[in-house]
Amino acid sequence: MFDQRTTPYAALIMRLALGILFLAHFSLKFFVFTPAGTSTFFASLGLPGGLAYLTMTVELVGAIALILGVYTRVVAVVLIPVLLGAIATVHGPAGFFFTNPNGGWEFPAFWIVGLIVLALTGDGKYALKPTPFKG
């Protein structure tokens, strides 16, 4: 059983936390590594360099949507493949622990769990555009 009074605030906190994390990771790729550098890194992994631009776009738009509460459930599900890709290409081969060289997969996997929780709980308080799917 869940508390109808506090659950919307829990979803809000989860939405904001995940949105800020995605915004931080977009910012790292954009401002520190630069889009061209991120593209080169993707290519070094055997991925198309252009996928870096798509990834950054999804992270930025997804972060803003989560923070504002726009189609939260859909956005949460859409962001999961970004993290699965990070696990498959960089973090998975590094092992479980995120303290391993190249960071393990525990942290991105926990993000996925958070996104699944958000997809199941919904928008929470102060969402600008609640998802049309009601659970």
Results as ranks from 00 to 15, higher is better:
67 I>K: 01
16 L>R: 04
39 S>D: 13
134 K>L: 15
39 S>L: 09
24 A>V: 08
52 A>P: 07
99 T>V: 15
40 T>S: 10
19 G>C: 01
45 L>N: 07
96 F>A: 06
94 A>C: 01
125 K>M: 08
24 A>D: 02
87 I>N: 07
70 V>S: 00
63 A>L: 05
89 T>L: 02
20 I>L: 15
59 E>N: 05
99 T>C: 12
55 T>S: 12
21 L>H: 08
61 V>N: 00
125 K>N: 11
32 V>E: 15
78 V>N: 01
45 L>A: 06
126 Y>C: 10
89 T>N: 13
106 E>S: 05
58 V>H: 02
120 L>K: 14
99 T>D: 12
78 V>Y: 02
11 A>H: 08
50 G>Q: 02
96 F>V: 10
15 R>K: 07
76 A>W: 00
21 L>K: 06
37 G>T: 02
21 L>C: 12
124 G>Q: 01
53 Y>C: 01
57 T>Y: 12
31 F>L: 14
111 W>I: 11
83 L>M: 14
115 L>K: 03
18 L>D: 00
36 A>N: 13
106 E>L: 02
33 F>R: 12
29 K>E: 03
110 F>Q: 13
87 I>K: 02
71 Y>R: 11
113 V>K: 11
84 L>H: 06
124 G>T: 02
103 G>E: 01
102 N>G: 09
132 P>D: 05
31 F>I: 08
135 G>F: 13
119 A>I: 08
92 G>N: 04
36 A>M: 12
104 G>V: 06
4 Q>A: 14
134 K>C: 12
99 T>Q: 10
11 A>T: 10
88 A>Y: 14
38 T>Y: 04
105 W>R: 06
11 A>R: 09
117 V>G: 11
10 A>M: 13
21 L>P: 08
63 A>R: 05
52 A>H: 02
65 A>L: 12
112 I>E: 06
81 P>W: 03
50 G>N: 02
108 P>H: 01
135 G>N: 12
16 L>C: 05
30 F>D: 13
6 T>C: 10
78 V>G: 00
44 S>W: 11
131 T>L: 08
77 V>C: 09
49 G>F: 04
81 P>H: 01
124 G>D: 00
74 V>P: 09
113 V>S: 13
128 L>W: 14
39 S>C: 10
15 R>M: 03
17 A>Y: 10
96 F>Y: 13
25 H>V: 00
114 G>C: 15
17 A>M: 10
70 V>A: 02
55 T>F: 03
37 G>N: 02
104 G>H: 08
81 P>Q: 01
98 F>M: 13
66 L>R: 07
87 I>L: 05
90 V>Y: 06
16 L>Y: 04
25 H>I: 00
101 P>G: 09
10 A>W: 14
88 A>I: 11
109 A>P: 09
102 N>V: 11
130 P>F: 05
79 L>Y: 06
106 E>I: 06
116 I>F: 10
44 S>C: 11
63 A>H: 05
1 M>T: 15
130 P>E: 07
62 G>I: 00
1 M>S: 14
128 L>N: 03
109 A>N: 06
